[in-house]
Design a protein around this nucleic acid. Structure first.
Lengths: 221, 221
DNA sequence: TAGATTGTTAATCGATTAACAATC
DNA sequence: TAGATTGTTAATCGATTAACAATC
């Protein structure tokens, strides 16, 4: 079928898709590589190349049909209307995420939280918070593929391991622990690697200081 | 002075620095490119190259002295012990960040929050929450260079503009609005560009679904 | 010394950009 | 038709990797 699609392209496709949905809801029907490039901050050539690699074709003068783009990109990316996610660790960050209202707009649904602290459990809650020991069964039963790790650093590795064993393949990691999965997936379940994306806000902020500092230096020399 | 340092290198240096501080606190004195590479997930050659470009030298068989590394990397990156940050928008995310205890460990200090909702103001709070109209003066007076934007999307562009005018040069953007600063800084204040990093958690989660989906497809074909 | 590690050069790889023919 | 945009190829650029001499 389709050629190999680079990770960069996949991430851009996801962003095009968001812009396209906004454009459609505004009543637009056509779009040019030009417009889309501006919207996500890349050159028109990149947009055309991306579409070319996933075999989406436009009209030589009329640009691309938004409906068609949305349909094709959604198909390629495997976009589902329901995207169920579990959260391990219902502390400050975990709770904030459970209350985060933006998710539902995008079809993301936090289906359960897990914690080891009995005080935090709410089995009957709107989003149930269960004991962490029940995570593997829950993941298997509900065929969850994506999970958020917002436990303390000290618990990160063990939680990661058990989530992976249970079948989670995509991780959003809020700890500062480097979670590696290359070759760690049990062969019987998983011959491919997992995907771990890290969100490290204090590192992000530090990086801003560094980048601003160094840009200044460069400028003044 | 130093040659041009790529952004990739800068971001890696920041991560080495975090690992090095941990190693030092464990009593380690020396480290090999090997170890550091493992710790942040790059090859040893990348580590040596990074150090080479910032003119840090090791010993042909004894690796690198941790103290020296920390000192030099901190100097290059311009690491300060106090890293003051303001937050625009004290809703759910903004408040969670103000309460986030990890920041102080890294020397990051949220010095004030700003909001347009009178109900949210707390001028006498531990971290004062002031009216958004007072942000520019505050930033100028306290020479703040880094800010967090966690306002509703609809307010993002205007808030960004006023923060930039006031002198903020590094932005952590929690909205889904594409904030562009190329050429937008007022020349009198700023001949260099700003740095905007985006944190879009729902996009991150969506991307995990897409990447997992596509890795599966690739595998099974 | 032998073995291990640095530091650097050249080779490779992939992504981005430039350019332009095709064509609506 | 003239002008604008796609789609693709070749050129460029930068980052990563491989390889290995230097040397502790």
């Amino acid at each position: 079928m389709t050629d190999h699609i680079s990770e960069n392209t996949i991430l851009r496709l996801a962003r095009y898709l968001r812009v396209l949905n906004k454009l459609r809801s505004l009543g637009f029907v056509k779009v040019f590589s030009n417009n889309l490039g501006d919207a996500i901050g890349v050159t028109p050539a990149v947009v055309r190349k991306d579409f070319s690699t996933i075999q989406i074709h436009g009209n030589k003068r009329g640009g691309y049909a938004i409906d068609h783009l949305i349909e094709e990109i959604s198909r390629i990316l495997g976009k589902r209307s329901d995207q169920p996610v579990v959260i391990a660790g219902c502390g400050r960050i975990g709770t904030a995420l459970m209350e985060y209202t933006e998710f539902s707009k995008e079809g993301i649904q936090i289906v359960a939280g897990f914690d080891s602290d009995p005080e935090r459990l709410e089995p009957e809650g709107d989003i149930p918070v269960l004991d962490i020991s029940r995570l593997p069964d829950f993941v298997v039963e509900n065929q969850i593929r994506v999970g958020i790790i917002s436990v303390p650093d000290s618990a990160a590795a063990a939680v990661f391991e058990s989530m992976m064993q249970a079948g989670i393949r995509g991780f959003l990691n809020f700890t500062t622990v480097e979670l590696k999965c290359a070759g760690r997936c049990p062969d019987s379940v998983c011959e491919h690697e997992c995907v771990v994306h890290n969100v490290n806000i204090s590192l992000e902020i530090e990086n801003l200081f560094y980048l601003v500092h160094l840009k200044n230096r460069l400028q003044s020399s």
